[in-house]
Design a protein around this nucleic acid. Sequence first.
RNA 1: GGCGGCGUACCCAAGUGGCUAAGGGAGCAGUCUGCAAAACUGCGAUUCGGCGGUUCAAUCCCGCCCGCCGCCUCCA
Length: 501
Amino acid sequence: MLKITNTLTGKKEPFRPVRNRNVGMYVCGVTVYDLCHLGHARSAVVFDVIRRYLDYKKYKVRYVKNFTDVDDKIIKRANQEGKPWLDVAETYIRAYREDMSRLGVQPADREPKATEYIPEMIRLIETLVKKETAYAIDGDVYYRVKRFKNYGKLSKRDADELAAGARVEVDERKENPLDFALWKASKPGEPTWDSPWGPGRPGWHIECSAMALKLLGRGLDIHGGGKDLIFPHHENEIAQSEGATGKPFARTWIHNGFVNVNQEKMSKSLGNFFTIREVFEKSPWPEAVTAEVLRYFLVSTQYRSPIDFSDDALKSAKAGLDNFYDLFLRLRENTLSVGRADKQARIALQNFKKRFEKAMDDDFNTAIAIAEFQKLRSTMNRMTQEGISKSTAKQIESTFQKLGKVLGLFQLDPESWRVKGVKLYLELSDELKLSDKIGMSEKAHVAKIDLSDEQVQTLIMEREEARRNKDWSRADTVRKKLAHAGIIIEDRPDGTTRIKR
RNA sequence: GGCGGCGUACCCAAGUGGCUAAGGGAGCAGUCUGCAAAACUGCGAUUCGGCGGUUCAAUCCCGCCCGCCGCCUCCA
């Protein structure tokens, strides 16, 4: 039985969708005014994994993740760049899609844009106004927080105390400092739509209420996003939606923890953020490898906890994955016609599956799920030594692939993970050279040696010849030379040589 | 100030009122190997920030203290 920690109740509770096996899931997407950073990547990967696991459990998932494409920050950006605001939004929606596809994040079933749901928003606001849960002033419409008795139930805040401690400069026209904008009269040059209150544009929170209600309605089982959205965004969504419909909005609220750098939240204001593409660009590994490394890093911590990003963390993730892919290679190479360990291996696979599901059922504990993969890897390495047949080896590999898919891991061809065939040209850097940026000590000594494919081949042949002549010192010299270019040579028992980087 | 969270070995990271405190990375030693790498085997927290309390028994429950972080304003 799947259990999920629900922010609303503060408890881990059994997951029961409204309509049996159908799951409606809404996740707050990004405001498209800039490139996505690793924080966005984490949120995306977390909910991608949740979605994949629900699929795996044979739920019928309808996953909606929106784009906020009308907003103050987009307007500001457009003004800075002297571009139409729609262009800005389009640019970053495209960038988002590129980044996510690199990360192997599956698109949601619906990716609505706020601007496509203006009529729905207006209707929602009208309902609220009719119920006197909202009021209009000079073309603006505000939500009357006092009218919603449960205000604060998600973020566990007391409305009165909030009002007392309000740090925002108070708009004198508002009845209560906590009241928030549902609709804003637009200034010249700003995006604008006709409305019963005059030309204007939506406030920040209303779009998600409108889209979630429209696309998922009462089947809203899961509503998610980063922890920073709990207040005010999700709190306000609840107020708007429940204020209008009089019915509970979402059943289970899921919030993911932040990505930190040196224990501090990665954020624009601190300037300590890394964009997703920046990490890809600076990565010493091929793109597909980097993607899995990032995912491995991101899911190696339970989704609610903070996770600290660093070069070391990525290297550690890479090393962990290398060991898996080494096993996959071994599985393809070291098989027999009849395996002594076949039976044991098959039993281990069955047990593994149960443990994996147990881990994931417990609030998507991907950290434990990975630990289970690790144990299986170790077991299978031993089985391989004892001897397994080709068909069992295939079964093992496909189990890793099939269950790994839930986390988005082990999806690459083991041959291409780090053996021949990948791009040979590489810039060799121990560190990702992120150091200066995050103020860490300078320790990146970059040796840059580019070897062409041909040069590598020549060197390897040279070493083979040396080995045949038992000229060990010459063979080792070549090995060292290649090592400088990041190429590792492994001599295998059958006399062949494996090339890794 | 209010609310929430965290502090587990060199690093990352699970976890439980009592059974060996998972797993990974790094390290060390052994087997293997021309050497190396990989794999395998072994080693590595008598202890879970500190101090008290509850309990037959606490890392896990309670209280206090110390340290760190987040939200309370836009933020994944």
